[in-house]
Design a protein around this nucleic acid. Structure first.
Lengths: 216, 216
DNA sequence: CGCGAACCGTACCGTACGGTACGTATATGG
DNA sequence: CCATATACGTACCGTACGGTACGGTTCGCG
């Protein structure tokens, strides 16, 4: 189980403000622009404070990831009675949110940063990003999928596998393409709709399939 | 003197050997290890030659991508009469090959490199990687999908969309996870099989569906 | 043989980064 | 009013990188 779960105000307000400036700097200029001097200048703090608070540069990067993850909160919609139509809508909303998160400036910048550091020996940034950043959205999706199954609308043996399929259908290679800097990938709405249709065709029970168009 | 489109023996054998050493260096130590001095030392050449051949560091990186792409050759299997079983097998082989390529040391290292440089202004590396590295595998997949349609085994309106779906089903988030350095993602065979089953369930005609197990 | 081109090895330069040290200012508490 | 802690700004240090210059060596060719 996760030992690192305690995340109530991991940093002081002042430190959060500094991390915010650091993120802004990273988004604007990439990793090359994220120098300790630059962060100190942008945040009006001293380098000495940076090293006192975060240890070293890697500590600063980890803190940035933790801080950004702490800002993301996904609200669980519970207790609602699911129908075929509402399940479809909820999954579409999830798909759109997922693509929107992945396409966000800060998300892309942090993923690029972690990927760039990932062949460095034991950088832990990638692990941190996956654990902190993905946990929320994974939980939300799994809850939705489980609810669909309990409502007799979805049918699968392995929920993880079903979620993996949904993720692949929704994201495909869009994430990597965005990470590589390919422009003009903002038509996410249609992509999400198509993906959800395919997902429901694969995992929906007759109750769901009956309400879907016969052919794509 | 060649503009960057003509790719018959883009570099001399000596230059190819240097690029090979540079790739090895990148795979072993990441971008940080890929210094001009390091490449010169590993390849037993002079820095002056590096700058004469490739212009500057970015030119060297671009040349590495072009060189690696020139090594990948996908042989097209043509003229074969497709059946439901052989289509399934061919798609499975494609899926496995795709995952194997994406999981390759050099592929991961180059993708990490290009992604790390992609928020730098106009780095072109990402574009280059997508155009050079993906074109071959895209063509192979599209040919296979088209052949399946012509044989009355697949049914779709938009071949690009069908391919995108296949790609997403096969790769899901595996590529990004590998790029982030997550270990133990080598169980590609089962993943490929499941993905192809889902793909054929979505796009297969009755001829194909008749030969598939009733439920997953 | 002689000549020029290509190339290797090394030394060199300017710059910029990560990290440390120091002097000063502000605030809090007795 | 003083003492202590915290933090700001700046200056500083060692290192390492990208890029250039130069002398020596090999190789192809007339």
């Amino acid at each position: 189980m996760s030992v690192d779960t305690a995340e109530p105000s991991e940093f002081s307000p002042r430190q959060n403000a500094v991390l915010e400036q650091a993120l802004q700097l990273l988004v604007d200029g990439g990793e090359k622009a994220l120098t300790t001097s630059g962060v100190a200048r942008a945040a009006n703090c001293s380098k000495e404070s940076l090293y006192k608070w975060f240890g070293d540069r890697d500590g600063l990067l980890s803190a940035m990831i933790a801080y950004q993850a702490s800002k993301v909160r996904t609200f669980e919609r519970n207790g609602e009675r699911l129908t075929a139509a509402s399940l479809h809508d909820h999954v579409v909303i999830f798909a759109r949110d997922l693509l929107e998160v992945l396409a966000g400036d800060v998300s892309l910048a942090l993923n690029r940063l972690a990927i760039g550091q990932s062949n460095r020996d034991g950088s832990k940034l990638g692990k941190l990003l996956l654990e902190r950043g993905r946990r929320q959205i994974d939980r939300r999706a799994m809850a939705l999928i489980d609810a669909g199954k309990r409502a007799g609308l979805l049918r699968f043996a392995d929920a993880d596998e079903a979620y993996h399929t949904l993720y692949g259908l929704v994201v495909s290679d869009l994430h990597v393409r965005m990470l590589l800097g390919e422009p003009g990938l903002k038509d996410t709405a249609r992509q999400a709709e198509k993906a959800v249709t395919a997902f429901l065709r694969l995992y929906g029970t007759d109750k769901v399939l009956a309400e879907m168009p016969v052919l794509g």
